[in-house]
């Protein structure tokens, strides 16, 4: 990291002397000591093992193998991926209309509305997840609503302590993470472009598929990475809304290896696929310019 920072290609046009290193030394040093090194050391744990109560620091691939072969880890990993994918796609579907509306249709109070969208992001995640427990319960608001409107006759218990419940909760808690980048990118699309497509005979669908969707890809990808990553690593929602707190999703299993089962090496090994998938997504997103402009 330091070596990269030191590579001062040329002085900025403003005649700045010296490189950015004095400025970057502290933040990069911090990130190195308090993030990158701990992360690397954690991954080293994956190649160790537990001998009764202590960590045996002899190299072994047992844990890595276990992640992909020993039940229930592979099944839970796949389940988590499916859940993360479903939540991401749903959030894209929900976020598109409102982002479009905010970016292109709203004429007054747009900033206020945007702030309203963002606000739930800053109100306690724990509280919002807990609120869903109240809404989804057998005698909760959702069942009460369905019964009064005559949509169902009996309360549906499958909303709470189930995968359905977790899915609904995830879609809600991560939604602002999708709306924000999508709005940002849609806001930048010039109206003239859309008009041009219309003038050239493109109907609504064509314009959407051929023009809007490709151009909004960076925003979509940025939001998707956030939503996917957050779902992959969460253990609070499975605990409150899921049926089996520790084993619904991979995040719960990882948390339990550190907080309950006391098997750090296995926990670290279970983190490897999460890291690989999220970093893979980041690289894909980066290719499409989702992580901000590259201003070298």
């Amino acid at each position: 990291m330091a070596a990269i920072a030191a590579k001062d290609e040329q002085a900025a046009p403003s005649g700045r002397k010296g490189g950015p290193l004095p400025l970057l030394a502290l933040p990069l040093g911090w990130m190195l000591v308090f993030y990158l090194i701990p992360l690397a050391l954690l991954l080293v744990h994956a190649f160790w093992s537990v001998d009764y109560l202590t960590i045996d620091r002899t190299f072994t691939l047992e844990n890595i193998k276990a992640v992909f072969t020993v039940a229930p880890y592979p099944a839970v990993l796949i389940r988590t991926l499916l859940m993360a994918a479903a939540v991401t796609l749903t959030d894209i579907a929900i976020a598109f209309p409102i982002s479009w509306w905010l970016a292109k249709k709203v004429t007054s109070h747009r900033e206020l509305l945007l702030m309203l969208v963002v606000f739930p992001l800053w109100s306690s995640y724990l509280v919002r997840a807990f609120a869903w427990k109240t809404i989804l319960g057998t005698n909760g608001i959702l069942n009460s609503f369905l019964q009064t409107t005559g949509i169902t006759s009996e309360p549906i218990s499958a909303f709470l302590y189930s995968k359905t419940g977790m899915y609904i909760t995830f879609c809600h808690v991560w939604l602002p993470f999708m709306i924000l980048p999508l709005y940002t990118i849609l806001d930048r699309l010039p109206d003239t472009l859309l008009e041009a497509s219309g003038d050239l005979g493109g109907n609504g669908w064509k314009t959407f598929l051929r023009v809007i969707l490709p151009l909004s890809l960076p925003g979509l990808l940025a939001g998707s990475v956030s939503v996917f990553s957050l779902t992959m690593g969460d253990y609070i929602t499975p605990s409150l809304i899921g049926g089996s707190p520790g084993t619904e999703l991979i995040g719960g299993i990882v948390a339990d290896q550190f907080g309950v089962a006391n098997n750090w090496p296995l926990g670290a090994a279970l983190i490897l696929p999460i890291l690989a998938i999220v970093i893979g997504l980041l690289l894909v997103a980066n290719r499409f310019g989702a992580l901000g402009r590259d201003e070298r």
Binding site: D8, A12, G292
Partner: peptide, 18 residues
């Protein structure tokens, strides 16, 4: 400040790390 006012290689990497 460093990212905005200086030219150097590896900016995306620093952004990524942060």
């Amino acid at each position: 400040y460093a990212l905005d006012r200086y030219r150097f290689r590896g900016k995306p990497l620093i952004r990524f790390a942060i």
